[in-house]
Design a protein around this nucleic acid. Structure first.
Lengths: 209, 209
DNA sequence: CCGATTCTGGATTAGACAACCCATTTTTCT
DNA sequence: AGAAAAATGGGTTGTCTAATCCAGAATCGG
């Protein structure tokens, strides 16, 4: 798992793009459910409804597919939260975001953890390229949170460094997700995010919900 | 990887215990460095300086070895922190514990993450038995933190639920460790723990360090 | 419409790895 | 000391899986 990363076919037919997307989506789902190494290419092949050489037609090797999956999951995670990100410049908006995260995990029965974080944790020590891809995903996530907190700060409503607070909130989310995944209960996520947001709220002058 | 979990030889010679320990220690190190699935039994065999059948003489299968490793890492983590746990009943003690965690990661060059958490995250969805073992390790860890916060609370120094606060601190630690591992920088861990401890400190009446 | 390119199917290979087996040596217990 | 139990060495096997190959079908570009 360490080789050329670029896609092979420069041009992709519409059909080709659809097939490629199906492969990535199936791989993402399987890697999310079972982990990267436990998701075999044979599983991906079957789940995507393609056969044999298809995967290698669109990806150089499993590594290339993995990187595509990390991209895909990053987009999915950020897209899912996009409507909530816009309101992260108020304590009320932060609480709404928290509620959505908790509700999402509850629906999943606390399975899977963070789509990005669980991959990152698995590959961190053995796959530098994938680690960097995950790191870049986290950076974007952190940036989205910081945008809201930064707005509050510029409005003079928030004391304390918004950069630090955004990172702390993301860390609380990740730690909460992991403990929730392992304990199969939402309480760790709830408690972790509540503590982080209480801390933010304690630094807010106006808008004290 | 799902079978009998019990050790086979009821009695162990002193030499046998030493060999078994060597195998567990080697396996723990390799699983920490490379992850559970990437650490092959051949690697463990070589690292432990034993040969062929040795591993299967002491463990039913890789699953049994993994469970022993989780036990081992839990003990190691708790033992390492034991002297610091005693002082978690003050903000000063909490800060000292934070500094030790950060310093430890710095020494490891931010590699490996949490010895328990990284295993837990990897096996959570595919290995219920191992997931429960990790969950029980986290419960002990959480208990140690809660003991300190609980003491403060009973002394009337700490407002807020010590159970929730302990869980929040552990979550901040885990999230901070994971981001630190992925970014290869100690800042996420520092910021995450500082935020969590600031939050605790904001609920403390006396001893406001 | 036709040559070129892309896409698809299925079969195959080579290597890795968990797990098993048996013969031999070492240790323990009486 | 001697029998029983435990420990060790190394070889073997069967399975799983990533990766490759080639032939044929569909699609595109001019």
């Amino acid at each position: 798992m360490s080789s050329e990363t670029r896609q092979q076919p420069a041009r992709l037919t519409r059909k080709g793009q659809a097939t490629r997307s199906r492969i990535v989506a199936a791989a993402a789902q399987l890697m999310y459910e079972r982990g990267v190494t436990e998701a075999t290419l044979e599983d991906v092949r079957a789940a995507a409804g393609v056969s044999g050489s298809q995967i290698y037609h669109y990806f150089a090797d499993k590594q290339a597919l993995l990187l595509a999956v990390i991209e895909h999951q990053t987009e999915a995670v950020l897209e899912l939260q996009a409507p909530l990100f816009d309101r992260l410049d108020s304590v009320r908006g932060l609480r709404a975001w928290r509620d959505a995260m908790v509700e999402f995990q509850r629906r999943l029965q606390c399975r899977g953890g963070c789509p990005i974080g669980s991959i990152g944790s698995e590959v961190a020590e053995t796959n530098p390229e994938a680690r960097l891809a995950v790191a870049s995903g986290f950076l974007r996530w952190e940036g989205a949170i910081r945008a809201g907190l930064g707005a509050m700060h510029e409005r003079g409503e928030l004391e304390g460094d918004p950069d630090d607070l955004a990172l702390a909130v993301l860390a609380a989310l990740q730690g909460g997700l992991m403990l929730t995944q392992i304990q199969r209960a939402v309480r760790p996520l709830e408690v972790a995010l509540d503590a982080a947001l209480d801390h933010v709220a304690s630094l807010v002058r106006v808008d004290p919900v």
